[in-house]
Amino acid sequence: MNKKMVCVACPIGCPLEVEVNEKGEAISITGNTCKRGETYARSEITNPTRSLTTTVKLLGGKNPVVPVKSTSPFPKGRMLEAMKVINKTQLKAPVHIGEVAVKNILDTGIDIVVTNNDTGR
C-alpha cells in the first residue's frame, strides 16, 4: 500500500510517498530531500509525534507567562493530556532557556523546558 504525506520536519514540507507492507512497516520512502524526511515518515506510520510548544505561568516575571517546549517530539495523541499537566505548572522568575519546567511528563521520558529568558521585574 502507498501512503502520501507531507514531511513536517522542516518548513520546506517535502511531499513524501511511503510504501507500507502488511505489517504496517515502511519499505520504501521517496520524495524526501534529506535524511530527516525518512525518519519522519517512519515515525509517522508507527508513532506520529510533534513538537509541543506552549506557555507556563510565571510568578514575578516581566511577563505573566513564559514559553516552553518538549525536549523531543511528543506523541501526537497525548498532547491535550500533556497540556493539562503543563497548565497546572507554575515557575518563579528568574528563568532561563533550557530550565526544566516539567520533568518526564506523563512518563514519556520527555521534559518540558523553558524557551525564553525572563530575569524578573
Binding site: C10, P11, S51, T53, P67, K69, I97, T115, N116, N117
Partner: peptide
C-alpha cells in the same frame, strides 16, 4: 520572534530546530 513560541526556526541557519524566542535569544 518573541511571540512566535512554536518550533520551526533555525533549521537552515543553525542546523537545529528552535522556537522563535530561542532563535532571537
Amino acid at each position: 520572534l518573541e511571540q512566535c513560541i512554536h518550533a520551526g526556526f533555525g533549521l537552515h541557519y543553525f542546523g537545529e530546530e528552535l522556537t522563535g524566542p530561542e532563535y532571537a535569544a
